[in-house]
Amino acid sequence: MDATPGFVNLLNNQAPFSLDSPEPVWFSTEQSIPMDTPPVSEQSSSKERRKWCVKEDIILISAWLNTSKDSVVGNEQKATHFWRRIVEYYNSSPQLVGTIPRELGQCKQRWARINDQVCKFVGSYEAALREQRSGQNDDDVMKAALDIFFNNYSSKFALEHAWRELRHEKKWCSAFLSKDKRKQPVEVDGEDAVAAGEARPIGVKAAKASIKRKKSGRDDELEKIQGIMEMKEKISKRKVLERLIAKTGPLSEMETSLKMKLLSEML
C-alpha cells in the first residue's frame, strides 16, 4: 500500500540534516547545561580555613587581656559587646596591615582553643615542677611538662607561645609555686636577690649572739651549733648563686654584683 501523499510531501519539504548544520529545533527539548559548570554544592562550599600564626595568636591574647581588664567598662560587658571590642582591637593592630580581617566567630573559636590547651598545659607544668630535682633548670622543667602533656592527652602541646603570654596572669599562673615556699622561680632579681643573700647571715649573727650568752661549760656544744649554722649559711649562698647562674636573661647590676661576691666567697 502506498504511503499517504500528505506525509510524503511533509518529509520532502524538510531541510536535509548534516553534522555541520545546527541541531533541529525539535531535538532541543531542554535547555543545555554547560559541561564545565560545577555542581551547586561545590559553588556553595565554605571558604578555606585560614591557619593562625604565632603573631596572630599573640595579638588575639593581647586583645582579650586588654578588653577584660578595661578599668572603665569593668565586668559590666555583655558577651556580644565584649567580643566585638576584641575583634575591633585585633583587626586594628598595625602588625596586621595588609591581611584579611578576622570575623568574630573565628576569634572566639581560636580563643576557646588557646584557653583550653593552655589550661591543660598549666596542670602538666605544675606536675613537672613537683618532680623537679636539684640542679634542673627551666629548660628541664619545660621538657618534662611537654612529655607529661603528651602522655596525658596523646598530642603535642603546640601553643607554648600562648602559654608564655598567659603564664603570669592570675587564671593561668602556677598555683604550685605560691603554695610551696621551698621552690622559688629561677628568676632572682633586684632587692629579692640581695635579701636572699643576706637572710642567712642575719640569722647566723643572731644565733652567735645567743650562743655567747650561754654558759662557758658548754663550749663544745656551742661550737657544733656554730658549725651547723655556718654550713646552712654556705648552702643558702650556694643556692642563690645557682639560681643566678641558671638565669637565662641578662642580670641586673645588683645581681651581677651579688653573683661576683658569692663566687669569690665560694672559691
Rank of each mutant, 00 (worst) to 15 (best):
P185D: 00
L166K: 01
K214N: 04
S44T: 06
T29V: 14
E131D: 15
I245H: 11
S62H: 08
Q184K: 12
Q109L: 13
C53K: 15
E126D: 10
G190S: 04
E242I: 08
E23V: 02
F176R: 10
V141D: 04
Q95T: 12
E223Y: 05
L251A: 10
L177W: 11
R113E: 07
A127P: 14
G197P: 00
R84W: 07
P250H: 06
E88W: 08
E103Q: 13
H81Q: 12
R182L: 09
V72Q: 12
I211G: 01
L263S: 08
L177K: 11
M254Q: 13
D180N: 15
C119E: 12
D139F: 10
C173G: 02
L129N: 09
D220F: 08
A112W: 05
P201N: 04
G203F: 15
A128F: 09
D116M: 13
T67E: 03
A3G: 02
N115E: 14
A63N: 03
S252Y: 11
K212Y: 08
T248G: 05
E126C: 07
F7Q: 03
K181S: 08
K205C: 06
V8F: 00
S178C: 07
L146N: 07
A79I: 15
W26L: 06
W52T: 03
K120W: 11
N137G: 14
L251V: 05
R84G: 11
A63H: 03
D219Y: 02
K47H: 04
A175M: 15
E56D: 06
M260N: 13
V25S: 05
N9E: 05
K208V: 09
